[in-house]
């Protein structure tokens, strides 16, 4: 058998002839480079440009002077953002709200994932399906549903008043609490799925060994189960934190005027003020803040695949 033939048999066939491999890698790479990676360069370019009354509303990046190209880059947009407490508050606020919501999602998601992983094998798939199903129905509509529930005359206030817990309606809609609730609600499946994946693979004999050696269930949980589920916790937290930090729909529909989140501010700069350079600069800063978490997520995923 020639080397090439041996390779062909050892490797998987069909798409893995050298031409097949090339197609399988090249098409997705070309698409993602063009429509996902390269666009960031244009955002950075606009963030270094000046706003102008034109279509599109930015000045030219390169101008020609006496036959020579002159770069018209400016740091003014970044300087403006770093100078204005409003933008800084929005940036820090987004990170804080996303962090708190991620923690809450973990606290709610962990027992659920653990319960599903410990359920009868035949019950696990239906239970998982119940977790995923809401994710398949419109996100926008589910967030809107909470805005009806949380209103002053909404169901939650009516129920609490009927029970006599409160006398007057509690203000819940348009608060930071509502935003956190919305994030926990929308991103819960993203926390449960990776947690379930690690908990389900947990080696039962380790737990038995711990019990045999006299560890109480609580000790076994803290010393064995929890440390072993750390990769799932990391993946789940990153899957919630990263998109939540740039969330627009949830703060827009559930938050109030004082709930500052960077996604909402960026949207307003872009659509209401038509200030493309500042919106681009905000996007660039958010992207820079999120690069490390995104790379971490990629690492945890490739490690989970090897392990």
């Amino acid at each position: 058998m020639t080397d090439a033939a041996a390779d062909r048999v050892a490797d998987s066939p069909a798409l893995s002839t050298s031409r097949g491999r090339l197609i399988g890698i090249l098409i997705p790479t070309a698409w993602l480079l063009l429509f996902f990676a390269i666009p960031f360069l244009f955002v950075i370019k606009i963030s270094l440009s000046e706003a102008a009354y034109s279509v599109p509303p930015v000045s030219d990046f390169l101008i020609w002077q006496d036959g020579w190209p002159v770069l018209q880059a400016t740091w003014a947009n970044f300087a403006l953002i770093l100078d204005d407490p409003l933008y800084l508050q929005a940036l820090l606020g987004s990170l804080r709200i996303a962090a708190i919501s991620t923690l809450l999602t973990l606290l709610i998601g962990y027992p659920m994932a653990y319960a599903i992983a410990r359920a009868e094998p035949g019950m696990r798939t239906p239970l998982l399906l119940l977790v995923i199903l809401p994710f398949w129905t419109s996100f926008l509509i589910r967030v809107y549903a909470w805005s009806t529930l949380l209103q002053d005359q909404g169901m939650i206030n009516s129920a609490l008043m009927w029970l006599g817990v409160i006398d007057d309606p509690m203000r819940m809609l348009n608060t930071e609490f509502a935003v956190q609730l919305g994030i926990v609600y929308s991103y819960l499946p993203f926390m449960i799925l990776p947690l379930y994946a690690t908990l389900e693979r947990l080696d039962g004999s380790l737990l038995e060994a711990a019990a045999d050696l006299g560890a109480r269930p609580a000790t076994t949980f803290w010393r064995v189960t929890l440390p072993l589920s750390l990769p799932g916790m990391a993946a789940g937290c990153l899957l919630v934190f990263i998109p939540a930090a740039g969330e627009f729909v949830i703060p827009e529909l559930l938050g109030g005027p004082d709930t500052l989140m960077i996604g909402k501010i960026m949207w307003q700069e872009f659509f209401n003020n038509r200030d493309w350079p500042v919106a681009s600069a905000l996007a660039t800063i958010l992207l820079l803040l999120l690069i490390v978490p995104i790379l971490l997520l990629d690492r945890t995923q490739s490690r989970a695949e090897q392990g």
């Binding site: 666009p39 606009i46 990263i242 996604g263 960026m266 681009s280 990629d298």
Partner: peptide, 25 residues
Amino acid sequence: FSTMLTAPLVMPEVITGLSLLMLFI
């Protein structure tokens, strides 16, 4: 390759939307 496939899953939509618009223009 794998990073370019992971990142769109979590990238805040405001960033993806803005950058694609800049590309199209």
